[in-house]
């Protein structure tokens, strides 16, 4: 067992063996250790494959080696069907990655969700992001029945009940509680702008240990939002990571703005992409600049890079931004190229 800057870097015989849980920590995960040690953290997300091939996940995760502290696995994002977040996370934990399981309330009721949360913890998942989720009408199965038995805040309370009260919502007692570092999302960039801070406060009251925000392309809005969060003492109670995106072109940016709920991209960004000779490169430059500006804002603990179909550029933008300040996040020592379940 070795420790670097307050972070346990090695574990037991098998790479997937759980790390010891330091006192005062909610989970035995490395992501929580990085934040609690005061490091500026980087997270990113994997789009789960439309495939039953586990190697595809490892290939996608490998792109982020050495530049991210945790990898979110989305849960049917945009109400499209993909491999489940739970399965992706379970595969990632086998070789020691620190995945964040995303749990959305769209597809499962409180019985299924609580079962999945216990299962995730049993499979070595230590981080969980509570989301309400996109409506089924946004996806490729609009005829599906939307569940929404819980919402994101009730989901946070549910996880807290399992973890801290060691019981189901029904009151039935658990033998072993799931030790999870629990997150929620915020979007300070869409109406009602005035009340978004109250929504953050509510999620922290409901138990959020960390926050990952929607795409930030508007530093002015973020700055005023964070000033209020600091004033209200919210940044003392929770680690806030701000979402950034890698835009491939002005067309993609317009498409995102018009078709993906909750994405706010100022005209200035789109004009910049329009005027660039190499828009792809310019999109990455914008991301790098945003990351550098975000790191300077008081109260922010890290950045969540969302680079759908631009995953291969995540390492480049993180390195160029310099926000890690020379720190190299954990990566698996030996990348196993196959875990050989399917082929």
């Amino acid at each position: 067992m070795s420790k670097v800057e307050g972070i346990t870097t090695r574990q037991g015989l098998n790479p997937g063996d759980p790390l010891p849980q330091p006192p005062g920590h909610k989970s035995h995960g490395r992501f929580e250790q990085v934040l609690r040690a005061g490091h500026f953290a980087i997270t990113t997300e994997i789009a789960p494959p439309d495939s039953a091939d586990p190697d595809e996940i490892l290939k996608r995760a490998h792109l982020f080696d050495g530049v991210v502290d945790a990898i979110n696995a989305t849960d049917g994002s945009g109400a499209h069907c993909h491999m489940s977040s739970l399965a992706v996370c379970a595969i990632l934990t086998r070789i020691g990655y620190s995945p964040v399981i995303q749990v959305s309330c769209r597809d499962r009721n409180r019985i299924a969700i609580q079962g999945d949360i216990l299962g995730a913890a049993a499979l070595g998942v230590t981080n969980l992001l509570c989301l309400t989720g996109d409506d089924v009408s946004a996806g490729d199965h609009p005829e599906a029945k939307p569940v929404f038995d819980l919402d994101s805040v009730s989901l946070l309370q549910t996880v807290r009940t399992l973890r801290d009260e060691k019981q189901f919502l029904s009151g039935r007692v658990l033998d072993t509680a799931p030790n999870l570092f629990m997150g929620a999302s915020i979007n300070p960039f869409v109406p009602p702008l005035e009340n978004r801070i109250d929504q953050l406060a509510k999620k922290i009251d409901a138990g959020a240990d960390f926050i990952q925000s929607q795409y930030c392309f508007d530093i002015d809005l973020l700055t005023s939002f964070m000033a209020r969060a600091v004033d209200m003492g919210l940044t003392e109670r929770c680690y806030i990571l701000i979402g950034v995106g890698v835009l491939a072109s002005a067309r993609t940016a317009r498409w995102l703005r018009e078709n993906v709920p909750g994405v706010h991209i100022p005209d200035a960004i789109i004009d910049r992409l329009d005027g660039a000779t190499d828009p792809k490169q310019e999109g990455r430059n914008i991301c790098v600049e945003l990351m550098q500006q975000i790191k300077e804002i008081n109260g922010i603990s890290g950045i969540h890079v969302m680079a759908y179909r631009q995953e291969k550029y995540v390492a480049d933008v993180v390195k160029r931004s310099g926000v890690l300040g020379g720190r190299q996040p954990w990566a698996p020592e030996q990348m196993k190229t196959s875990i050989g379940i399917v082929s």
Binding site: R106, D135, D151, S154
Partner: peptide
């Protein structure tokens, strides 16, 4: 549409309308 009891969600349109039904104001706004 998501029967959120602790809203709003993060998908509210810039004009304050619902992400699911663009002809309806967000009930949480």
């Amino acid at each position: 549409p998501k029967t959120i009891r602790n809203g709003p969600c993060g998908g509210v349109r810039a004009n304050g309308m619902c992400e699911v039904n663009p002809n309806m104001r967000c009930v949480w706004v």
